[in-house]
Design a protein around this nucleic acid. Structure first.
Lengths: 189, 189
DNA sequence: AATGCCTAGTCACTTTTCTGAGTACCGTAC
DNA sequence: GTACGGTACTCAGAAAAGTGACTAGGCATT
């Protein structure tokens, strides 16, 4: 039940509508939690019912009206509680790794393709995260920002995301290379 | 529905019982998919019903009898099919990252503790994965094993797991350090 | 004038994952 | 001799995550 806490954590940065939150979950928050818009709307509804967030209607002229949410006192307390209980161990959970595990026994061609696609997707993500990090730290140098900036939480999670994507890209390329080479050499198998 | 494929991929290395499979899911396979024994038993039952694996009773003297499973022809075909369809993008999904995201706004103390626990857990995992890798490649050097060894799939996924754990440990320690320093300096906040 | 894209959401449902509790027998250590 | 840990597995159910289809208006392009 961490989606709810991910939502609360994301709402710490201000008021967001479900739609805006969905955007945030596509960039920053996606580093540690992925969710589609429907899940977020559903979660916001539940959180509001439980009084952990409060919604407020915003009338817009040229666009559909929207409801924006902020974290209530009770919401902060819940996050506080969540922060103190034990985290379950992290792990990767990736389809593509399952395919690589089986790579000797299945058609390697499409696995190689997917590895390369993933690598370039990771490149895109790396670029994006670089921008987010620059935006977050503003003019300060990283070291200084981390020492004295306010709101380093999102910065730190982005750093994790960045290194994850870099490692992922490197591994994908290396693995694709190895499988390709093996394919060429033992062509007859 | 990748647990089923993770199970199939894990069974490529020979016959396993549910119990043995659970062990494998605690070490090697856990690099890309985590599951508790009950899930594996359930999945094996379903896979057998669908003819993707075949079970066989093994009578044991000193221990309870067990049923071991192997992948059938249909199972191989299913893996083959799975390998060709698109993988969903990978992401981290980690409780602890959620807590770090909120770290400026909640009690940082317990987050720091958890980061340090995680770092030492990662150390353990790194050690373990090193052993697994050595066992898998036997006497060969890594480069050579990757070129010519048979069954490199599990080796490659372990490499991914290893780099994940290393990055994770480094990030946890760095993050803990930063939060600790901030705690010390802005003690009054 | 039709097409497609962006904002902003809702509803109903399925699938997948996870949790807790329980059974049973063997061997070993204290 | 009894408590503990390992092997081996089952069952029932809850919670979490994910999917597909749908509404509705504005804006810009073709």
């Amino acid at each position: 039940m961490a989606l709810r806490h991910a939502v609360l954590a994301a709402l710490l940065d201000g008021e967001y509508s479900g739609y805006q939150l969905a955007k945030a979950f596509d960039i920053g928050v996606a580093n540690f939690w992925h969710a589609v818009p429907q899940q977020l709307y559903a979660e916001l509804t539940k959180l509001e019912k439980e009084g952990l967030v409060a919604g407020r209607q915003v009338i817009q002229e040229t666009r559909p009206n929207k409801r924006v949410f902020r974290v209530t006192e009770a919401g902060h307390a819940e996050l506080e509680r969540f922060a103190t209980d034990v985290s379950k161990p992290s792990s990767i959970r990736d389809d593509l790794l399952v395919k690589v595990q089986a790579a000797d026994r299945v058609d390697t061609g499409s696995v190689i393709e997917q590895l390369e696609e993933r690598a370039s997707a990771a490149d895109g993500k790396i670029e994006l995260l670089g921008q987010v990090l620059r935006r977050l730290r503003g003019d300060a140098a990283e070291e200084e920002f981390l020492r004295t900036g306010d709101r380093v939480g999102p910065y730190l999670t982005c750093l994790r995301g960045l290194s994850f994507e870099q490692e992922h890209r490197d591994w994908c390329l290396r693995t694709a290379g190895i499988l390709r080479e093996r394919q060429a050499h033992h062509a007859g198998r």
